[in-house]
Write a protein that binds this DNA or RNA. Sequence first.
DNA 1: GTTTCGTGGTTGCATTGTAAAACCAGTTTC
DNA 2: GAAACTGGTTTTACAATGCAACCACGAAAC
Lengths: 152, 152
Amino acid sequence: MAAREQLKHAPCPVARALDAVGDAWSLLIVRDAYDGKRRFGEFLDSLGIARNILSGRLRKLVEAGILEEAAASDGSAYGEYRLTRKGMDLFPVVVGLRQWGEKHLYGRQERHSLLIDEASGKPIPRMRPAAADGRPLTPANTRVRKLPDGRA
Amino acid sequence: MAAREQLKHAPCPVARALDAVGDAWSLLIVRDAYDGKRRFGEFLDSLGIARNILSGRLRKLVEAGILEEAAASDGSAYGEYRLTRKGMDLFPVVVGLRQWGEKHLYGRQERHSLLIDEASGKPIPRMRPAAADGRPLTPANTRVRKLPDGRA
DNA sequence: GTTTCGTGGTTGCATTGTAAAACCAGTTTC
DNA sequence: GAAACTGGTTTTACAATGCAACCACGAAAC
């Protein structure tokens, strides 16, 4: 993508974020990492992705500081990929995608997996942007304040 | 993407969501729509995307029910693209991406645009997944309950 | 009312990214 | 030490992207 070059240095954080994780596989890898997966083979089996593509994505995520390589925790000589703090911080994005998908992408009959709060054993409540006083924030009552010089 | 076929009918809502909006351009279009942009030319100028790609993405977003075509609100005979409820509901995802980008993708020196709460005129607070009692939820204290038959 | 321009696309072609399968080196198992 | 497993890379085919040119239609100029 030629426009990617612009994206990477955009004044809009949404654009930069999408440059980093704006392809389908990256966030699915991160999702699997939340689920405890760490090894190349685990991601491979779970995602059904081609090996070379997975290889490239993992390298990109490591370069981006979202994952880090480490010695395998099972004592073998192999490596594994672990989430960094930066990767952990993507949790709200994945939760947002999940909740949107749950609401809009399943038929009445269809079932889907659920994200469970381990403390209560119940599905987690809907996450919504809110002001400090609790008022819900929407596109209608927010606006983007652009940089004086720049674009969106 | 061959795996896209699997994604579209995956039991994981994250996978389905990424099948729908898991490319960089779609969410940037939605972001611009939140910012009030509606016309083909507005998206074109704002994004720096190729015309044919924009055309295809807009069609895909309309088919997905995220945007809808309508007569232009300025009285001309041209059309415009408006967000549906489904599109509005992507707001938490875009906010999540924005806040992650703000935190991790800018140097100390660098400035970025801000999302402002119009009521207070101040930047909106960080959005985080939380239990009903307010406890913060993270990958560490949640887990995915998979379908009995299916995968992640 | 017919040139002229702006809008909203489509088409064709070159470049790039993705997918699948084969291959391969190092590791573990037996 | 042979066989199988892990974690890749390479090769080749195909699909998506990007760019530029083109075109139909509505609007504006005259």
